[in-house]
Design a protein around this nucleic acid. Structure first.
Lengths: 201, 201, 201, 201
DNA sequence: TATGAATGAGGGTTCATTCAT
DNA sequence: CATGAATGAACCCTCATTCAT
């Protein structure tokens, strides 16, 4: 990578880092481009050389941050010796819930701005590491290694993600209607049921 | 009601009607108070006699509109002759999904702004009609009439609502990952399972 | 006084009391008519039945409050047994300075808004008590009882008042350039000199 | 100075000139930032690149204008051949009174907004000219060259300034209680007395 | 490329004043 | 007389965006 390109990458990183920090702190509406660039220690006009507006930055960040969360869970799973398909899925869910519980501002940011469309198109195909499969391939391989047949695996994943995401939002941010531990007690059996009901016998 | 009070009620109605129409058309961010009051044919300053800011209007509207949707489903259920508890819940879900499918802008508005906290505290206790039980009492009576015992009925309702709401949002607005009919085919069996798994034998 | 008139007097009193309290607390600019009437527990529209605008209230209050300060000093002098003209003037000055030092907000209010014109035309002629001479007559009588002749007594009073008022403002409110006690040490000899230099031998 | 900096200096000048003209014409309360910028032929938003609010402009202008008045008197004194200390002080007072009499709007502006604190901290230390002493050094040198000892020279200056400023305000603006010439006849002897009474024999 | 001064439209909000009740 | 809801002009201030340097 040329020196010029390297410099540009650094600048872009400075802008997104600054933006992320402000977005989760004050919210997107209350964050101005001037704010972002001041924190990034760059001139206001420079913003427009990299992004069209702050919503482009937001979308970029939602994708990146959500993918990072998933990737961490994936790596943890790979380093564990969980063998069963059902256990693997629950391992991933649990790891993600714990991550979000440890970083509530990140949860708010992702949860408010993440749709299945973004998840499906951006995150599942994001290449985090050259030598590693992307999320889609990874999940596909989970299904394959399960030794079982599942009808409509995408729908299964979709439902699990939506249920986890929406209940987590309420429970972690507002502790409503219960605390996280209590949610898990009800949630995990249901996820197991969901998986089994998608199994083809 | 005095003439003055009647007039105030009318004005408040004009403001919220105008605001709702603009919120679902252009979104809340893009709607200014000037916009709202112009459409309502009232002076800008009048807004502040009724609301603190547009977010107070939004919250008011989310509560009201969501309660209306639920109330319609409730009335339809009462007029039907569905007898089984499980069928009743699915009747309600189905009715609500159909309503939202018929009014996608309303779905976007409610879905984006509705939290369990609001639902729990505002909608469940909203009195829609003098002679009719509110949502909370209504749901309670459903459980009672079921002839069965359920552990943690609130958690059950919470999970159903979150799952329905979040999957509906994606499916109805973006047809992702599937169309509504297909979602129902997967969703309803899962809801049945959820209900049964909360049943105390 | 009729019941109606009595009622009107009460309302006017409530308005001016409320206004005074707000003027010295937040300043005149930051005080709105709505503020005044809210604190007075009267309707906004009622204000205009009594005053044209808040500046009319201010002028009314400056006159009244300044006259009260002077009157207190005058009464104290009458109850003392100071005999010498020069001593009497210094007694008045000292009493007034002490009053203002004890009520700095009052000082700020009076000092900022009092001009010689107002003092001359309003305060000197204000009748505080039916059986008592007004300020002008009182001062005149001081000159007469002095046993001495003074050229241009008005100019003498004018200069003393302006010097006292302007130095007091800086010293009492900002302690600049010195504290009040130190000011008095320099000020009183100068006032004595001023009086003597207006004496006709 | 760079072209950009030169331009900024010009803009700031245009803003303060415009503001001064409006402040003395209509008063500060009645002058809006929109007014100032329209007269300055600049965009409204530009104001905030230079000042926080109009009160910051006012303070800036009070200092600058008062310093200019004093500086003019100082230069005139230096060009005269007045030798005596007492005469020098009176020369300065007289020169300043004449300047203010010639520009009544300026007098109103300065007199209403000038406090001893501002005078002491801002004006006395303002550098009007590279090769010339500031006001403080200048007055100090007057005391030193006088050949006499004065106790508390600051207090002496403070009292003279307050007396001159407050009487001038009333006399020049409202001709009350007398005209300027008449005031001078009473004022100057008193100032002479004040100076002598601060002299250490 | 990068800068940051300048723009001016447009936002929220306040408030003196009116007037039907 | 007294009320207070309604008005809408006018205010301050922010901010995305441009563009000369």
């Amino acid at each position: 990578m040329s020196k010029v390109d390297e410099n540009k990458r650094k600048k872009k990183g400075a802008i997104t880092d600054s933006a992320f920090s402000l977005f989760i702190q004050k919210g997107i509406n209350a964050t101005s481009i001037a704010d972002i660039m001041q924190k990034a220690q760059l001139a206001k006009g420079t913003f427009y050389l990299y992004f069209k507006d702050k919503y482009e930055v937001r979308d970029y960040l939602v994708r990146k941050k959500a993918a990072q969360v998933f990737d961490k869970a994936k790596i943890a799973l790979e380093q564990s010796n969980v063998k069963e398909f059902e256990e693997k899925i629950l391992f991933l869910v649990d790891h993600i819930l714990n991550q979000l519980n440890d970083n509530k501002l990140l949860l708010r940011f992702i949860s408010k701005n993440l749709s299945w469309g973004i998840f499906r198109n951006a995150i599942m195909n994001m290449q985090m590491d050259e030598n590693s499969p992307n999320a889609e391939e990874f999940i596909e391989s989970l299904f394959e290694e399960s030794g079982k047949q599942y009808r409509d695996s995408e729908m299964l994943i979709f439902m699990i993600i939506e249920l986890v995401n929406s209940t987590a939002h309420s429970v972690i941010l507002y502790k409503q209607p219960v605390e996280l531990d209590e949610l898990k007690e009800s949630l995990y059996p249901i996820i197991r049921q969901m998986i089994r009901s998608f199994e083809i016998e």
